[in-house]
Design a protein around this nucleic acid. Structure first.
Lengths: 247, 247
DNA sequence: ACCTGAACACCGTTCAAGT
DNA sequence: ACCTGAACACCGTTCAAGT
């Protein structure tokens, strides 16, 4: 309905890189990763598609700007003041929140290769230092952090499955079996009642007992479980009785 | 170089659904999720693109056939004979192996919505039953399984980052911060040495001490950590001292 | 410098035509 | 029933033209 912009350079720039990135997240959350296109983004911004190429080299570069934006929103500050096992919780919650507010970003980041831009390492550095202060042997720290981040990312993918199933039904995505099954159940399909009656009972019991969704309940259970397990591991390491590390 | 097929129905079918799916995984592993196209798949199969539509309704349906294929390869049989905490390990290894052999599938599954096909629930049912036999309260079982699967899926994504960085460098994908950082380090970039010296030391120590990659070491550490944590949790539940479940 | 419009290669999907 | 070839809408990207 808007009046068509006439050709030639506008008196003031119509776009900005920040605005493009911000809008990109909006578009992504509506279309999902597979239908996230430069054309749709341009349309939302009220410009022709080629205009975007004044600000980003190509689609891959745009996604990598989104990657950087996402990782900069994860708050690891607590590792500077709290002991490692206490800092994990607020960090993990912040981490998951960033992805949970727009879970489609995970598929996009996993699908689009990284370009040359350096990852932000500030958070990582202070996490490692916190583990070190807590008495962790140097060689075990990276694996521990990788394990934690893996869990958090995986948990964020559950949010994708769940939110889609609660929404208008246009999108229903899932990566895990349980994710798919819970999604189906949320949609009111009851095929699982006959095929997997015990699972169906367990799911109903979960829903009756906890207000939060399976994904949220699982996230809290999982992160607390991992912290407890890591504390145990650290204790064993201190006693000179390390867990077996080879298969 | 092949002789061109002439128009009209061939005497015997050139394709089969199984062959299409199998080849789809091959193509995916070479192109990555973002460049996985019907056209490339058809070319690999030696047919024109529209020929595929005799066997699958559309790209989404094809991806959902791949989804089903992947989940059917996960082996949960051990839950029928072993106690829950012992069965988790072989199941998790099988689970991760399925995804680790072609980690690009995760991005594809996360990007493409599920269609109406029912998820396979056989494995899920026997996992729930095993937890129940082990004394788990019904309402805690689904969250525990969701947490475990989340971790496994997240860990498989690490494999994506890592393998890409060890390969020809055509693809370099990562979802987590550490994943990206480890990828960079594997590529010989040493930007992190100055920016995050403690992290750099920890990474070197890990590489010196363990033969396996950070992703593999983290997977074993994480799954053992979660099992230990879950055992502890079950113990506490038995003592009537449940972990807090509300924030 | 920063937009539009035209152009091109490629993609998903449909459909008529051929056997 | 099962392939090809033509056709169409849409996508990413490049580039000349315009201010």
């Amino acid at each position: 309905v808007e009046t068509r912009r006439r050709v030639g350079r506008p008196s003031r720039p119509v776009l900005s890189r920040d605005q493009i990135i911000e809008t990109a997240f909006d578009v992504l959350s509506e279309t999902g990763a597979d239908d996230f296109t430069m054309a749709r983004l341009a349309a939302r911004l009220g410009v022709q598609t080629p205009a975007l190429y004044n600000y980003v080299r190509d689609r891959r570069a745009l996604v990598n700007l989104m990657r950087w934006d996402v990782s900069s929103r994860i708050d690891a500050k607590q590792f500077e003041v709290l002991p490692w096992d206490q800092a994990i919780i607020p960090w993990a919650i912040s981490y998951r929140q960033v992805f949970a507010t727009n879970p489609h970003i995970i598929a996009l980041l996993a699908a689009v290769p990284i370009d040359g831009t350096e990852p932000s390492l500030i958070g990582l550095e202070s996490i490692v230092r916190s583990f070190l202060r807590g008495g962790w042997p140097l060689a075990r720290i990276v694996p521990a952090i990788v394990a934690l981040e893996s869990f958090i990312i995986g948990s964020s993918l559950d949010v994708l499955a769940e939110r889609d199933s609660l929404g208008n039904g246009a999108h229903r995505t899932a990566t895990t079996d349980v994710g798919a099954a819970v999604t189906e159940a949320n949609l009111g399909h009851d095929g699982h009642e006959a095929l997997a009656p015990t699972f169906a009972r367990a799911l109903r019991a979960q829903q009756a007992q906890y207000e939060s969704s399976p994904a949220d309940t699982a996230f809290r259970l999982g992160i607390e479980t991992m912290i407890a397990g890591l504390r145990l591991e650290l204790q064993k390491l201190a006693e000179g009785d390390p867990l077996p590390t080879t298969e």
